[in-house]
Amino acid sequence: MHDTLAEPEKTAAATDGATVRLSVAKPGDRGVIVDVQAGRQSGDHGVSVDELHRRLLEFGFVEGARIEVLHEGAIWRDPIAVRLDDMRIGLRRRDAADVWIQLDAE
């Protein structure tokens, strides 16, 4: 890992909302990004894990951002469209695996 900044320590959900990977979230799920990790996704991304990590961060997938899953594709429910603060972003589930969100308590 080239990341010099220590990943914030994350334990299990601090409140009643569960912490899940964005890659498994369903439309309607909303919450706060609690962790964006580097290197835990499976499969070959053709770019280094560090690169994918930085791309996610550049698009605004950062800890503390509000996120809501809006739509999903017709085939294998992929890709997903999310609202990230005031923006809308489309991404594939496999690229979303390293974004952890804490779902709002119902």
Binding site: D44, G46, L52, P79, M87, R88, G90, L91, D95
Partner: peptide, 15 residues
């Protein structure tokens, strides 16, 4: 040739 490497797909959906 590229052994299944799939690039990330991240795209803004503008208003």
């Amino acid at each position: 040739f590229w052994r299944g490497a799939v690039e990330p797909f991240l795209m803004e959906l503008p208003t």
